[in-house]
């Protein structure tokens, strides 16, 4: 007893660190402030501040003659945003995001379902790494790989010719909107790369949602006479829906904001990200760039609000 007291007593009261520690113990608010101060100073003040300043530029407009920003609130920039050419860009990006999201769901679901329900032990780890490694591999290298794959002289053309299906590829490329000179300069190419790059973001939340479905539910459904398709439709799908919605937040938002993939693999027609990049860079029209930026933010805010109502955040 005495020995213990002798050990502990001095360290509590002596030394500056001891006193400081006591002070923080007595004033938890102070400790909280010290902990949160540095990160909040950077994220809350510098980051959010510059974000707000940039976005607020959208209510100003460029003077057509001088090319300088006139600092008077106006809706002219938003009027410009909804001109036909710019509206085209927005619709193109939104349709791409929607198609990419749907395709990701279709490709991701079997992987997620197998990993959640059938894979055990080593296989489970393998599936986990199998999704994690592509997720974390270099974004640019992944795009580069697809440049190799989709090139006219690349592996896809080679494979189609080997299978004597070269005519099929040519017919596909001859299609009006989705075709092009080669896959690497067509919407089909852009679409494939988007699906590839964002796929892991869809697999993980679906898998997380499916992990929570007890196997007995599926068995009960079968016992009650449902065939596999009915079980899927009425039991699995509703339970996986929050995960699907959570995944679609990623695929949708990432597609909306990306400007590198359509620049490297795709036709020369612009997507929102490219328009922002061009407006703030070469065109020097910061207000229009800001207005373009508001579009994905508003869309995602609505999307997130809807997703929250569907319970998607519990699946993250």
């Amino acid at each position: 007893m005495a020995a213990v007291a002798g050990l502990s007593a001095p360290s509590r009261t002596t030394g500056t660190t001891g006193r400081l520690s006591d002070l923080l113990w007595r004033h938890p608010r102070l400790l909280l402030g010290l902990l949160l101060g540095p990160p909040l100073a950077w994220l809350g003040v510098v980051y959010l501040g510059s974000l707000a300043v940039f976005l607020s530029q959208s209510i100003f407009a460029i003077d057509d003659f001088s090319g300088l920003i006139t600092y008077e609130p106006t809706l002219a920039t938003y009027r410009q945003l909804f001109s036909d050419a710019n509206l085209d860009i927005i619709v193109r990006t939104l349709s791409m995001a929607a198609v990419v999201t749907l395709a990701s769901i279709v490709v991701a679901f079997p992987i997620a379902y197998y990993a959640a329900r059938y894979a055990r032990g080593g296989w489970k780890a393998l599936f986990y790494l199998g999704v994690m490694l592509p997720l974390w591999s270099s974004y640019l290298v992944k795009i580069y790989a697809w440049k190799l794959i989709l090139a006219k002289e690349g592996i896809v053309t080679w494979a189609f010719e080997r299978l004597h299906l070269g005519w099929l590829l040519d017919a596909w490329l001859a299609l009006p909107v989705i075709g092009g000179n080669s896959l690497s300069v067509s919407y089909t190419g852009t679409f494939l790369v988007f699906v590839y790059v964002w796929l892991p973001f869809m697999i993980l939340p679906i898998q997380a949602a499916l992990e929570r479905v007890p196997g007995s539910l599926v068995e009960a459904s079968a016992d009650l006479g449902a065939d596999p398709r009915q079980t899927f439709r009425h039991v699995l799908l509703p339970l996986a829906l929050p995960g699907i919605v959570a995944g679609s937040i990623f695929t949708f938002s990432l597609t909306l904001g990306d400007y590198i993939i359509p620049q490297i693999i795709g036709s020369s027609r612009l997507f929102i990200g490219q328009a922002v990049y061009a407006q703030q860079g070469t065109a020097g029209n910061i207000p229009l760039a800001a207005a373009f930026t508001v579009v994905p933010i508003v869309i995602m805010a609505v999307y997130l609000w809807a997703a929250r109502r569907m319970g998607a955040f519990n699946a993250l």
């Binding site: 949160l36 990160p39 909040l40 994220l43 809350g44 510098v46 980051y47 959010l48 501040g49 510059s50 974000l51 300043v53 940039f54 938002s253 990432l254 909306l256 904001g257 990306d258 400007y259 990200g273 922002v276 990049y277 703030q280 760039a289 930026t293 994905p296 933010i297």
Partner: peptide
Amino acid sequence: VVSLLVILPIALPGIITGIALRSA
């Protein structure tokens, strides 16, 4: 709010974070 704030730089498209920081 703190959780949201931490996630924001990665939740928003990189181009937005990039331009905002550049202007700052």
